[in-house]
Nucleic acid binder design. Structure first.
Lengths: 215, 215
DNA sequence: GTCTATATCGGGATAGAC
DNA sequence: GTCTATCCCGATATAGAC
């Protein structure tokens, strides 16, 4: 059902543990020894599951973006208004990032991803950007979003994702979506109606037929 | 006029260079050799200006937060409505973070700051949080801000700061403020009037009499 | 205030036994 | 699939000459 690659339980433990440590200490600030110690194995054991430390970060980025990108592909195939698709996409993406055992928003904004070593992951992040920009541009053309620069608006909406990652106090997906849509909508009073339509949208949860992540 | 500590030109070059590198590669991903090489000196030269690498990050955080915290103290002493103070504070703080030669927003969100080594800087960041929460709470009591959880709202507004730090495309302070206030205001049509009042507010630019940063 | 030289440590990664 | 042992490198920081 899921498009996610099946992994050994040991590899999953590594990803989960690494994600937590990276969120707390940064990628370069987290050593493979730290990860191994938190799991309770010796450091070289990591290398039976990942060829290099960088591959752990790559895998985490893919796990974080895979589902939102696939969902965007499915939503684009529906005939729903762009603001309805945006609402649904935000809800599912935020819930995915919140609930995923190994993905935290902070992984996606770690500065090390800007290095040449992570070109493939940079492309995924650019596609993620594009998804938001496209939905906002469509919403503007359809008259549901007030006049503003779509690229700036997309950056602002994306930056709200970080509110979910901050330590010690998690803003809920519902709060983020409400804040974003009230800021975007030409007529904010339509929010309840948009939300109902978004929740009623039928998309395949298994992401069958969705665009492949490698594209 | 300025509350900022006077530093040697060499120390300023170190801070400026370090800020750029840390924004691009992360704090742990930036070595003192990287910083020295970018300046054109040998690595040990750094240690004549900063006793340890951590002191560079500490100084950058202080330089980033000093002015916004002092300004918040001054604004609290005025009788302006909270939404007007919030508007003015956002504008000056965003402009400060954008224009400062050595401070970038990403410095303030670097995960390494969560370590015990940076307790003092964590306290400054908590005061920064408080400033936003307090203004939003006051705005709610004064009826200018719509009903929402002040802590969540403050986190959301703060997360918008990051939109200014993203590589390759800078959202302007004006765009961030408009987005934030439209999302917060009970009556968004009052935004132009609030902006005029905020721009007309007189606060001392030298931050005289402002609360000391060490408090 | 910057240099060279260097001490010391921790990090990523590999080899080979079990 | 995990272990021990180890290699090699890069990183922080210090000592002492100029």
């Amino acid at each position: 059902m899921s498009a996610e690659i099946t992994r050994s339980p040991a590899a999953e433990r590594i990803l989960r543990t690494a994600a937590e440590l990276i969120a707390a200490r940064g990628y370069s600030g987290t050593s493979t020894r730290d990860i191994a110690a938190a799991i309770g194995v010796q450091q070289p054991a990591i290398y039976k599951h990942f060829a290099a430390k960088d591959d752990i970060l790559s895998a985490l980025v893919r796990l974080g973006l895979e589902r939102p990108l696939a969902l965007a592909g499915e939503l684009a195939a529906t005939s729903a208004p762009a603001v309805v698709r945006l609402h649904r996409w935000l809800r599912e993406s935020l819930e995915h990032l919140r609930d995923s055992p190994y993905v935290l928003v902070s992984i996606l904004t770690t500065p090390e991803l800007q290095s040449e070593r992570f070109t493939a992951e940079q492309h995924l992040l650019e596609r993620f950007d594009r998804v938001v920009i496209d939905m906002i541009e469509s919403g503007r053309r359809e008259g549901d979003i007030r006049p503003l620069n779509p690229t700036s608006a997309a950056r602002l909406v994306q930056s709200l994702f970080d509110a979910q990652a901050l330590p010690e106090y998690a803003v809920t997906p519902a709060e983020i979506i409400e804040f974003a849509l009230i800021a975007l909508l030409a007529d904010p009073s339509r929010l309840p109606e948009i939300q109902r339509a978004a929740d009623a949208l039928i998309v395949s949860t298994g992401m069958n037929g969705a665009e492949d992540i490698s594209g």
